[in-house]
Simulated assay, not measured.
Amino acid sequence: MKNCPFCGGNEIGPCWNTRQDGNEITMMFCNSCGATGPVVIYKTSDDENRSAKAWNKRHNLM
């Protein structure tokens, strides 16, 4: 897992939430600064892996 692009933290993990329309979503979360993203609509356990891949795909700001 890549470090957070905002604070450089390395404590990154998945988190889940429910949108107002009832869809479950997952995203990666930085425990150091609270940065989240990208959001993936959660349908199966594979979607957590999709969130991790999306997190690692972005460009680093640091």
Rank of each mutant, 00 (worst) to 15 (best):
M1T: 12
M1D: 06
M1I: 13
K2L: 10
K2V: 02
K2Y: 04
K2M: 10
N3C: 11
N3I: 05
C4E: 02
C4K: 00
C4I: 06
P5N: 08
P5F: 06
C7V: 08
C7Y: 04
G8C: 11
G8N: 11
G9C: 08
G9E: 02
G9R: 01
G9S: 09
G9D: 03
N10S: 15
N10W: 04
N10R: 14
N10T: 15
N10Y: 07
E11K: 15
G13E: 14
G13H: 13
G13L: 11
P14V: 10
P14S: 14
C15D: 07
W16Y: 13
W16P: 00
N17Q: 07
N17W: 07
N17S: 15
N17L: 02
N17R: 08
T18F: 06
T18V: 15
T18W: 01
R19P: 00
D21M: 07
D21G: 07
D21P: 05
D21K: 07
G22K: 13
N23L: 07
E24P: 01
E24I: 04
E24L: 14
I25D: 03
I25Y: 05
I25Q: 04
T26I: 10
T26R: 02
M27D: 00
M27V: 09
M28Q: 09
F29D: 01
F29C: 04
C30G: 09
C30L: 11
C30R: 03
C30P: 08
N31P: 00
S32C: 09
S32K: 10
S32Y: 01
S32V: 08
S32Q: 12
C33S: 10
C33K: 09
C33H: 08
C33L: 09
G34I: 06
G34M: 05
G37V: 03
G37Y: 00
G37M: 03
G37I: 02
P38T: 06
P38M: 03
V39H: 01
V39M: 11
V40E: 05
V40Y: 03
V40S: 01
I41F: 11
Y42E: 12
Y42R: 12
Y42K: 14
Y42L: 15
Y42V: 03
K43A: 08
K43E: 12
K43D: 05
K43F: 04
T44P: 06
T44K: 11
T44M: 09
S45M: 11
S45I: 13
S45W: 08
S45E: 13
D46Y: 07
D46S: 13
D46A: 14
D47T: 07
D47G: 09
D47Q: 05
E48G: 14
E48V: 10
N49D: 14
N49I: 15
R50A: 11
R50W: 00
S51W: 00
S51R: 02
S51K: 02
A52H: 03
A52K: 13
A52Q: 12
A52N: 06
K53D: 12
K53S: 12
A54H: 06
W55H: 03
N56T: 01
K57S: 15
K57G: 13
R58Y: 05
H59W: 06
N60W: 02
N60A: 14
L61G: 07
L61V: 09
L61D: 09
L61A: 10
M62Y: 08
M62L: 15
M62D: 08
M62I: 15
M62G: 11
M62R: 14
